[in-house]
Amino acid sequence: MKSWDERIDDVWAEAAGDEVGDDTIAHIDALAAERGPDDGRAEFERAGARDSAGRPDEAVALYRRALALGLDEDHRSQCVIQLASSLRNLGEFDEALDVIRAEAARAPDGPYRDAVATVHALILASAGRPAQGLSVALLALVPHLPRYHRSMTAYAREIAESDT
Results as ranks from 00 to 15, higher is better:
residue 4 W to K: 10
residue 6 E to C: 05
residue 8 I to W: 11
residue 9 D to Y: 09
residue 9 D to Q: 15
residue 11 V to C: 06
residue 12 W to V: 03
residue 14 E to Q: 08
residue 14 E to T: 07
residue 15 A to K: 01
residue 15 A to M: 02
residue 16 A to E: 12
residue 18 D to E: 12
residue 19 E to G: 04
residue 19 E to C: 00
residue 20 V to P: 10
residue 22 D to G: 06
residue 22 D to N: 08
residue 24 T to W: 05
residue 25 I to G: 13
residue 26 A to F: 11
residue 26 A to N: 11
residue 27 H to C: 02
residue 28 I to W: 08
residue 29 D to V: 10
residue 32 A to W: 08
residue 32 A to C: 08
residue 33 A to K: 13
residue 35 R to T: 08
residue 36 G to R: 12
residue 37 P to E: 15
residue 43 E to I: 03
residue 46 R to T: 03
residue 47 A to F: 04
residue 49 A to K: 09
residue 53 A to W: 10
residue 53 A to S: 15
residue 54 G to F: 04
residue 54 G to P: 02
residue 56 P to I: 12
residue 59 A to K: 05
residue 59 A to R: 02
residue 60 V to A: 00
residue 61 A to E: 14
residue 62 L to E: 08
residue 62 L to F: 06
residue 62 L to I: 07
residue 65 R to Q: 15
residue 65 R to W: 13
residue 66 A to G: 10
residue 68 A to F: 08
residue 69 L to V: 10
residue 70 G to I: 02
residue 70 G to E: 04
residue 71 L to F: 06
residue 72 D to H: 11
residue 72 D to M: 07
residue 73 E to Y: 08
residue 75 H to Y: 03
residue 75 H to A: 00
residue 76 R to Y: 10
residue 77 S to E: 15
residue 78 Q to Y: 08
residue 79 C to V: 00
residue 80 V to T: 05
residue 81 I to C: 07
residue 82 Q to K: 06
residue 82 Q to D: 06
residue 83 L to D: 02
residue 83 L to A: 01
residue 83 L to F: 02
residue 83 L to M: 05
residue 85 S to W: 11
residue 86 S to K: 11
residue 86 S to W: 13
residue 87 L to P: 04
residue 89 N to I: 04
residue 89 N to V: 05
residue 89 N to Y: 09
residue 91 G to E: 12
residue 92 E to S: 09
residue 93 F to Q: 05
residue 93 F to W: 14
residue 95 E to S: 04
residue 95 E to T: 09
residue 95 E to F: 04
residue 97 L to S: 11
residue 103 E to A: 15
residue 103 E to N: 10
residue 104 A to I: 13
residue 105 A to Y: 03
residue 106 R to K: 06
residue 106 R to C: 03
residue 106 R to V: 02
residue 107 A to D: 01
residue 109 D to F: 04
residue 109 D to Y: 03
residue 111 P to I: 07
residue 112 Y to T: 03
residue 115 A to K: 00
residue 117 A to G: 14
residue 119 V to I: 15
residue 119 V to P: 07
residue 120 H to G: 08
residue 121 A to Y: 05
residue 122 L to Y: 04
residue 126 S to F: 04
residue 126 S to I: 03
residue 126 S to H: 11
residue 127 A to E: 04
residue 128 G to W: 01
residue 128 G to M: 01
residue 128 G to L: 01
residue 129 R to F: 11
residue 131 A to T: 06
residue 133 G to E: 03
residue 133 G to H: 05
residue 133 G to S: 07
residue 133 G to Q: 06
residue 135 S to C: 00
residue 135 S to T: 01
residue 137 A to I: 01
residue 138 L to T: 13
residue 140 A to D: 00
residue 140 A to Y: 02
residue 142 V to Q: 11
residue 143 P to A: 07
residue 143 P to L: 07
residue 143 P to F: 09
residue 144 H to T: 13
residue 144 H to V: 09
residue 145 L to A: 12
residue 145 L to F: 15
residue 146 P to D: 07
residue 146 P to L: 03
residue 146 P to Y: 01
residue 147 R to A: 14
residue 147 R to M: 12
residue 148 Y to R: 15
residue 148 Y to G: 13
residue 149 H to S: 04
residue 150 R to K: 09
residue 153 T to Q: 05
residue 153 T to I: 00
residue 156 A to G: 03
residue 157 R to V: 10
residue 158 E to L: 14
residue 163 D to S: 13
residue 163 D to M: 14
residue 163 D to T: 14
